[in-house]
Structures are given as C-alpha cells and as structure tokens.
Amino acid sequence: MSTVTVNDGNIVNRAGRGKKIAVYGALILFSLMYVFPFFIQIATSFKTDADATTNPLNLIPQPVTMAALKRLADTDYPLWFQNSVTVTILVTIGRVFFCSLAGYALARLKFRGRDGVFTALLAVMAVPGIVLLIPKFLVLNYIGLYDTYPALFVPLLVDAAGVFIMKQFFETISPSMEEAARIDGAGTFRTFWSIVLPMARPALITLTILSFQGSWNELGHFVIAVSDPNLYTLTRGVGQLTSGGLGSGNQFPISMASALIMTIPTALIFIIFQRYFTQGANAGADKG
C-alpha cells in the first residue's frame, strides 16, 4: 500500500477501513453467538435453581453455590463418567490399532482379494450409521452380548472411515524404508510396528482424536446396546436425566453442570490437539 500514489492510497484505505469494520462487526456478533451459550452454561452450573430461572442471562451467580455439583455427585453420574472413560479408552486403542493394521494391509500388502476387501469397505462406509441401530441390537441380542459391558465397546472397535483414512495416509509415505527393513529381514508385522507406525504419527493422532470424539459423544449405540443403568455412559445417562425427572422441574443448574462436566475432557483434548482436529475434519471430508 505504501507504493501506491496518495490518491489511490486513500481509496484503498477507505475501502479497507469499511471492510475491516464490517468484518470485525460480524466477528463480534458471531463470537457472541458462539461463546455466550457456553458462558451461560458455566455460570448456571454454579447458580441456585431460583437464580437460574429468574436471571437466565446473568453471568455471575448470586449466590455462587456448589449445590448442583454436589447433587450430581450423589446421582449415578460418577459411574457414567467412569463407564464413558473406560469405553472411550478401549474403543480408541482398538480403533487406532485395528484401523492402522487394516489400512496398512490395504495400502501396501499385496494379497489376493485385497480389491474385494476394499470395495466391501467402501460399501460399508456408505451405510448411514443411524439405520444400524436395530440391526446392531438384533445381533447383540442374538449372540447374548446385549446388556453386557462388552456390548458397549466391542462393536465400536473398528471404524470403516478410520481404515480408509489410514489407507490414504499410508499411500502417501514412501515405501523405501519398508523395503530396506524387509531386505534386512524384518517380518511384515515388525516392519509395520517399528518402521511404518512411527512414521504415521500425524495420522495416528488424527485417528486417536476422531476415535475419542466419536466414542465419547456416541449416543445411538449406547441406547440400543444396554438397558442396565449400571452400564450407562454419560451420553445415555445424561440424555435420560432430562427426559426423566429433571426436565419437568426447573432444575437447570444440575442439568447445566452435567453437560459442563462431560464437555471438559473434550475441551481439554481439543485445546491440546487443535491442529489435528482441523485435519480430522478434513480427513472426514475426503471420504464423502
């Protein structure tokens, strides 16, 4: 801008300023829309029921109270939290391991039937998840897994989209290291485990995050897999809280607190691995 003539510079500057004001104005508006609900949620978690009902917009609780959190601790909430953590860890480990194994085989290993397996994978990915609720229940019921702990995580251990992401990734890395390892006499699994996987770190982190997010936020599968309240995860338990007794009264602080606590792990992971979240979203886009 400094090199243009004074006259032109003025025009550019004026247009630029107008644009900047418009952009910042829109930004502030949208930021409020996106951040304010979370602020209200946090504030309400520390309010009394009466305060939450009469002052829904106040961001400062009067008085500040831990009552909602304490009452939440007396419900099954801690158990649900524990179940969610266990299931999420198992699913994430399973998905990262199995999806990279299969993705590697589909990308690199030459075996009869590979194309057929890949075609089947693509077909599976085209099945919308929501129509699988009844089918999954039927099979869990049939093999006697319904309403057991394994029902919560075993069906989620492999994710077709995850295999696809890993396959795509393995195809982008050069095979020279593997060939060297092979010539040195390393077996297929050894090559995969100690040569290929370390190179796949970014894809593995992306897959870890997608798996965490997928299983922590999953609702449908947990609804159809179990009915025993002791096997509820957070989404199932909390979803029941509102449709059950809590929704009828004005007990908003406890409902906000239950939502808040289940959001904290997501927020932490999101902040730490933000960069990879972005990649994950776009990796998901590729499959479409």
Binding site: N217, L234, G239, T242, S255, M256, L260, T263, T266
Partner: peptide
C-alpha cells in the same frame, strides 16, 4: 468450530435451557 466437537447431548441440554 468448538461446538462441532462437543457431545450433542451436552449441547441439547444447553439449548433446552
């Protein structure tokens, strides 16, 4: 982007309120 990664159950509770 943050709301996209938060559980739909948690978001639903906030919106009900």
């Amino acid at each position: 982007y943050f709301p996209s990664v938060v559980s739909s159950v948690a978001i639903s509770l906030v919106f009900v309120y």
